[in-house]
């Protein structure tokens, strides 16, 4: 058993009278892809923030490995239109990155040669990949993605997560992500955590998708998720017959 990159023990986070996270025990090992799913307001983003160190827990503790390098891809980055910013300059924030490393990071993220472009002129998909490139520049042990595909269409999101899997196998970094694209994300994960203030259930994507709590939380969507998941992994061609053609690619 390796030492986990991050470990949370009985973590609770409260905002006033509102308990967002309640006794969460969680750890992420080097090299694994973990996805956190849960309804809106279930504390997913709070959990990620606690990992980054952006939140002081009300109880419990968060332990980070010594010298842990975190690459963070935020949910949304709104660049004020008054702020001029080239991709190259953005990648050097806050620490200067050499041209060679900048080029390499953009290649890895799947958007080569964008250095001189203005951030504001990028498409949604390019923008998210530039954010990914920036996160990869620190050579992270742990890559954290908070709803990183929120603005992308489904093929765009699927391509983005394929890229994440490739990055993981190239660099060996662990990945912790939150997403609404349940089926796409679950099929790319080693482990899924179903969160609703506390951890409802966790395990392999299949175990979670079949868990009654998960079905209760996601209702109708569950059928589709399960169907497509099986489509990817079991080639069960009957289960997804009610899906739209674009889902069943």
């Amino acid at each position: 058993m390796t030492t986990p990159l991050v470990r949370m023990e009985r973590l609770s986070v409260r905002y006033g009278a509102n308990t967002v996270l309640d006794h969460v025990d969680f750890a992420i090992e080097p090299g694994e892809i973990v996805t956190v799913v849960g309804p809106n307001g279930s504390g997913k983003s709070t959990l990620l923030r606690a990992v980054i160190g952006g939140i002081t827990p009300s109880a419990g503790r968060v332990t980070r490995g010594a010298g842990l390098r975190i690459g963070y891809v935020p949910q949304k980055l709104v660049l004020d239109s008054t702020l001029p910013m080239t991709v190259g300059r953005f990648l050097s924030l806050p620490r200067r990155a050499s041209d060679a490393r900048t080029r390499d990071a953009l290649d890895r993220a799947g958007v080569p040669g964008l250095q001189a472009r203005q951030m504001a002129a990028l498409s949604g998909g390019q923008f998210q990949r530039v954010l990914l490139a920036r996160a990869l520049l620190v050579q992270p042990d742990l890559l954290i993605l908070d709803e990183a595909t929120a603005g992308l269409d489904q093929p765009g999101a699927a391509a983005f997560y394929r890229r994440i899997e490739e990055v993981r196998s190239e660099t060996g970094c662990a990945v912790l992500m939150v997403s609404h694209d349940l089926h796409v994300v679950m099929s790319a994960s080693d482990r899924v955590i179903c969160l609703n203030g506390h951890i409802c259930c966790e395990g392999t994507p299949q175990v979670v998708a079949e868990a009654p709590v998960y079905r209760a939380l996601f209702g109708e969507g569950t059928q589709g998720t399960l169907a497509l998941y099986q489509h990817h992994h079991d080639h069960d061609h009957e289960a997804h017959s009610h899906k739209t053609p674009e889902d069943a690619h």
Binding site: G54, Y72, L77, L93, P94, V138
Partner: peptide, 15 residues
């Protein structure tokens, strides 16, 4: 640091 924090507080924290 100011620029990074201006872009996004969580991005800054992660750095």
């Amino acid at each position: 640091a100011l620029l990074t924090a201006t872009l996004n507080p969580d991005l800054a924290r992660a750095s």
